[in-house]
Write a protein that binds this DNA or RNA. Structure first.
Lengths: 259, 259
DNA sequence: GCGAATAGTTATGAGCCATAACAGATGTGA
DNA sequence: TCACATCTGTTATGGCTCATAACTATTCGC
């Protein structure tokens, strides 16, 4: 095969915004790539499974399967693209939810973020599995590749909220205030990715609190999404979620109204 | 096909221990089933993936693929068996860890249980994914089938620990003491499954605390197992785990030494 | 308009699930 | 003891998927 084809998801050369106009063909190509991913996502939802059949996607698009190889070198490449999209979408939805709440209302923002995380998972269990499960059994995530970066971008949302509260001087004291030395500086590279520009560093005990908060929230959401809480019914789950969010905020030193 | 064959995993008639001697052939059959499952598990580990190829398993056993259909009607049935085994193994390992610690040392037991849960997941990420992920994309768990029961059996371990502490009058007050009505009685059927014989019911606020505890612990373990904490390094993860366990106990009202 | 790159097609091969048809081994009853 | 039924394995086959090859039509840039 002609492996020198225009790299599928590989994007254009890194010169940021030089090639001003994306040429008619390039736009068509981008549109097709988009359509492929949308079709794949729709099929995931309809079939309730995270594996993809090129033949299904192609048929749905009125094409034949081999044509898809013009856009993605193999199934893993399509999957990687969908994982990156999923991370981005999760990050966007969470950010939207946060910004929809009055910036002064810190508890409101905290709850909104948690609820958005949960809602995203419930609405889109397949995509959630894609990100946070062993997505497709045989799929091997490219080490240090695009999925890792995407993950960190998405998770920055949570850290940002703690940073914001810290800058406002609204952070109390987390229940566990000591933090292990290795959490004192969250590695150089990652820090650049995870810290929004212009913000000072997050004190280590809050970085730790941020990670435990993520654990709590994620634990509930995962268990719920995969049906392990089905035995307590919908209202029970809603109530449990509220409890988890409250508990998360309180234990982290994040501002929360007395009750 | 002759669907009336001796049900593969379907086990013998329900009369408990009547057919005293499992006839030579039945023993051979059981041994083969066991070998199949062991081989499948080994391949999962070696290949790092949760999908199984009958051809691989058979080749590994010096057989041909169609022979496996004498023991499992299809791949899903083998998967279901492996999921049930995984739950049982997880439950066993957690129970062993708990009972290895002095019954008076409640914090020690709590930590041991959490550590066993974590260690099991780290040692066996594929099996963990089998249980707590969307295991194999196309796999559909039999509604209300053996996997559900197995899950509840395994999770009973956690509840049992709270019950024990309660009976010793060692439970403090969880940080969130109110529990939603729907958590007041955890459904009739499930309660029978989840409550060890001879124990009184667990007060609702502790049932709730038990669920949040599970969420916290599970959240950390899931994120760690799937590599989402790789950026903080091994010591960081160990430290974070200790923090999570402490936090879990403290917030649940479970006895924990001051520090 | 012409040549080159692009986007599609059909044809093909290898691998896997699953079933069918058949054959050897094994245990059972007259 | 021997014939029969059952169980356990085999080879043969069909249908489906991923992936590549070889070929064709379209479209873009000059």
């Amino acid at each position: 095969m002609d492996t020198s084809q225009t790299g599928p998801g590989a994007s254009e050369p890194p010169d940021v915004a030089s090639e001003a106009r994306p040429s008619r063909r390039e736009r068509a190509r981008a549109a097709t790539i988009e359509e492929i991913k949308e079709t794949a996502l729709r099929l995931m939802h309809e079939q309730g499974r995270t594996d993809l059949r090129f033949s299904d996607i192609a048929r749905e698009m009125g094409m034949t399967a081999p044509a898809l190889y013009r856009y993605f070198n193999d199934r893993d490449e399509l999957l990687t693209a969908m994982i990156v999209d999923a991370y981005d979408d999760l990050g966007d939805k969470v950010a939207d939810a946060r910004e929809a709440v009055d910036p002064e209302d810190l508890p409101g923002r905290f709850y909104a973020v948690a609820a958005a995380y949960r809602a995203w998972a419930n609405r889109d269990p397949q995509r959630f599995a894609l990100i946070f499960g062993l997505p497709v059994p045989g799929y091997i995530a490219p080490e240090e590749g695009p999925t890792t970066e995407a993950a960190q971008r998405a998770m920055m949302q949570l850290k940002a909220m703690f940073l914001d509260a810290d800058q406002r001087g609204m952070l109390g004291s987390p229940i566990i205030a000591q933090a292990h030395p290795s959490l004192h500086k969250p590695a150089k590279d990652e820090d650049e990715v995870m810290t929004p520009a212009g913000a000072g560093p997050l004190p280590p005990e809050f970085f730790q609190a941020c990670l435990t908060a993520w654990s709590m929230l994620h634990g509930f959401v995962t268990l719920e999404t995969y049906g392990h809480f089905s035995f307590i019914g919908p209202e029970g789950r809603d109530a449990l979620f509220d409890t988890v969010v409250r508990l998360t905020a309180i234990t982290s030193g994040y501002p929360w109204p007395d009750s």
